[in-house]
Computed example of a mutant assay.
Amino acid sequence: MDHFNRFIAITSLLEVSFLGDQYTWCNNNAGPKRIWLRLDRLLINLAGSLAFLTLKLIHKPRILSDHSPLVAISQDPTRFPRSFKFCRQWTQDEDFSDIISRS
């Protein structure tokens, strides 16, 4: 773990915040032998964190594995290009050339 932690520090990786259960792993034992840990994480560099400001990690419920499935989501609004419609009649307007020049 020391090597891995040094790698994270040297490369300036950041941990993405999460939603959901705190723990991502369980040893599936019963009673006092049960162990819960947060082993699974999402790391991102500075450029990635600036590109995805609202990036979050969701810890989903464990079903078939001893690990929780992780889902990364970004709540950034999807930007679709606006459709542009051109009406030829606009060219007949006396201010058309001035409006296009200013734009």
Rank of each mutant, 00 (worst) to 15 (best):
N29A: 14
R38C: 01
D66Q: 07
P32K: 10
R62E: 13
G31S: 10
P69F: 05
A30P: 03
L42T: 13
I35Q: 07
L70K: 05
N28W: 04
P61S: 11
S49D: 09
S65V: 07
I63P: 08
R38V: 02
Q75D: 00
A51C: 04
L64P: 06
H59M: 05
L43H: 08
L70Y: 05
N28C: 12
L70F: 08
P32G: 09
R34S: 09
D76R: 02
N29F: 12
S74V: 00
W36R: 02
R62G: 12
D40P: 07
I58T: 04
L37Y: 05
H59W: 09
A30Y: 08
P61N: 13
I35H: 05
A30K: 13
A72T: 04
N29G: 08
G31M: 10
D66R: 06
L37A: 09
L64K: 14
A47P: 06
D66P: 03
L53F: 03
D40G: 04
R62L: 15
L39S: 02
S68Y: 00
D66T: 03
P32H: 11
L55M: 06
L64W: 14
T54E: 00
I58Y: 03
T78P: 06
L50I: 11
P69R: 05
K33N: 14
D76N: 05
N29C: 13
G31A: 08
R41D: 02
L50F: 10
F52V: 02
I63G: 09
W36N: 07
L64T: 11
P32T: 12
R41K: 13
L55I: 01
A72Y: 01
L55G: 00
L70R: 04
I44R: 02
T54C: 01
L50H: 12
